[in-house]
Design a protein around this nucleic acid. Structure first.
Lengths: 205, 205
DNA sequence: GTCTATAAGAGGATAGAC
DNA sequence: GTCTATCCTCTTATAGAC
């Protein structure tokens, strides 16, 4: 990918700073509560300047979501190169990454409910392409893990895939962190364990 | 509890109709996207009349949340009378109820993020009392189930409690229902299984 | 492309008649 | 308590100078 002229590079850096701010604010307040004024203030530029870079508040948020999915796709690609890592461990690694992001306040909350953002995302080719790319790869790992006996074959791969995605907006880590008595790593371990091993006691192998 | 005069009974019925509408709209769109105009239109009265019953949009939503918690408390109390039901089965029954409510479009989405509603709820005694009442009872069952070897004793009861609560806003059932190829009961069974037994294969007992 | 200033409109809340 | 009509704030988005 060509870097373009110096001006274009400056532009990309600025837009990246905007998207980083949007990502953080989305994680903190969600799309509806976040205002464009806040974004402008956080970035340190005038609101009108924001609209020179992004056509709407939805486009602003969509850019953050695409960036997030790009990071997920990068992680998935990297895990795919590690021939020694099993599918189940790859799935756990992705889930752990999502939980880490969430606890670091960098996981924008997905709009599962009615929202103008949802409509924008469903019409965004970059977003949909990345989502499918990641989902396909995770789907392969899930099926492989089921064949190897590491994931319950009674569950449709769809159920497993959605369960992994759902960790990104799981309120449990936030509740535990709000309590203030556990370290982030401890929280992630517990949530990971409850997700893959369940709440019930495991029978002896 | 006294029923009061006829006028007061009519009032209660009307307010209940309002709260039912609010509950459904909260489940459908969430607090931020829901508008008071929509509520008024759905109930079939003027917006100003709504404000004779409830002081604000937050109070409106809080009433719906209190009603939801009241139902949860009723269910928990009823389960508590069934001496033959084990703690783990009681916990599963509560979780199943939450999933049923969600699939029926009657589970208002909890405001885990920044929201004026959250502040209102944290100042609402009815809400907090009910929440503590339900949490205490669920907590007892969790500890008992751990002692009986039905719930993983390595998990703090807090983690288990939050995991049960989190099923109320789990996006997985909604995703599966949106796919349209599974019956509601099937979806609930899968989500329940993944919650208590985990995604990983269970070793032979 | 960045700014200041402002348009345009949605949505929460209320006035006042009945 | 219910209505119609209105107020007013907040927020998205843009106009126009530089």
């Amino acid at each position: 990918m060509a870097r373009g002229s110096f001006r274009e590079q400056v532009l990309r850096v600025r837009e990246d700073a905007i998207v980083v701010s949007v990502n953080r604010l989305l994680a903190e307040k969600g799309f509806e509560v976040m205002t464009v004024d806040e974004v402008a203030a956080d970035v340190g530029i005038a609101k009108a300047s924001l609209y020179k870079h992004f056509a709407s508040k939805e486009a602003l948020a969509a850019a953050a979501m695409v960036r997030l999915l790009q990071r997920a796709a990068d992680l998935v690609a990297e895990l795919g190169t590690q021939a020694t890592t099993s599918s189940i461990d790859r799935l756990k690694a992705v889930t752990r990454w999502a939980l880490d992001m969430q606890l670091a306040g960098q996981m924008p909350s997905l709009p599962s409910q009615n929202s103008t953002l949802r409509a924008e995302l469903m019409a965004n080719r970059d977003y949909l392409d990345l989502l499918m790319q990641v989902s396909d790869r995770l789907g392969e790992w899930i099926v492989d893990a089921q064949q190897r006996g590491d994931i319950n074959p009674a569950l449709p791969p769809e159920v497993v895939l959605y369960s992994v995605y759902a960790r990104a907006c799981d309120p449990v880590p936030g509740f535990l962190k709000a309590g203030g008595q556990y370290a982030d790593e401890q929280i992630v371990d517990w949530v990971l364990a409850s997700c893959f091993d369940g709440l019930a006691t495991r029978p002896a192998a």
